[in-house]
Design a protein around this nucleic acid. Structure first.
Lengths: 130, 130
DNA sequence: ATTATAATTCGCCAAATGGCAAAATGTCAA
DNA sequence: TTGACATTTTGCCATTTGGCGAATTATAAT
């Protein structure tokens, strides 16, 4: 469990809900029991590398990214291969791109408008709290 | 143990003898008990991802290579990724992509989550009106 | 050969993973 | 509400990992 399985669990759960899929469906696709998946999501179990490997694709994760997130691969190891340009931080999640691309142009733009608005609201809240 | 831990063990043992190092020395460097290392080498135990990660450097292995060898990472994953996904019909507005790409991954996903939620709400409203 | 000394293997144990089936919870229509 | 579903959580258990210390085996040096 290593207690920070919580974070990994949250990430996995959020992704599953975003798609969205049920535990059972992910279980079917990955061959991992749904009870175990549930425990992983709520941080009661830490997934072994084998399990992580099997759930990566059904949830649309990049395998290595997930491994790095889980602490199995050191992050430096991930950087090396990435022949990407410098916007390593500024990368658009492939799944996000896919979903958004299916929306009409106005919707896509609206999403950005909402995001911008939320950010300015958040900024206001932050200064309020400090 | 998964029986083909034999192969992995041979690889590790050969590397260690080539350097050469004793089990104790590798143990000191990696923090993994020498008895466990011994069992791994002779295929009686299959190293977990965490253990594999810790012995990679002392033995001069590339982390990902070793993971792939152990069957934790799929070999395809080691090759090039980042090829463009399959949204040939649907198109993502370049400006939208650019703006979104500058956001952290969670934000990107949250955007999709919001979109999904709004769509289901809209669906509810629609059926309500008819 | 015979001790020292280092290296490896073995016996045992605690802790964690992951599956199965039952219990609990959620959801929705009648 | 009630009943009929699907979904998630829990209880229980087999299996595996990995550590510690003792026993065994190799390696020298005298």
């Amino acid at each position: 469990m290593t207690n920070n399985g919580r974070n990994l669990g949250r990430i996995i759960k959020q992704r599953r809900n975003t798609i969205p899929l049920t535990l059972r469906e992910v279980s079917k696709m990955s061959g991992v029991s749904s009870s175990h998946l549930g425990r992983i999501e709520r941080g009661e179990r830490f997934p072994s590398a084998h399990i992580l490997r099997r759930i990566a694709k059904p949830l649309g994760f990049d395998e290595r990214q997930l491994f790095t997130f889980a602490g199995y691969l050191s992050s430096s190891s991930t950087e090396v291969t990435e022949a990407e340009p410098e916007y390593t931080t500024a990368r658009l999640d492939p799944y996000v791109a896919k979903v958004l691309a299916q929306e009409p142009m106005e919707v896509q733009r609206s999403v950005i408008a909402i995001l911008t608005t939320l950010k300015s609201i958040a900024k206001g809240l932050q200064t309020e709290n400090d």
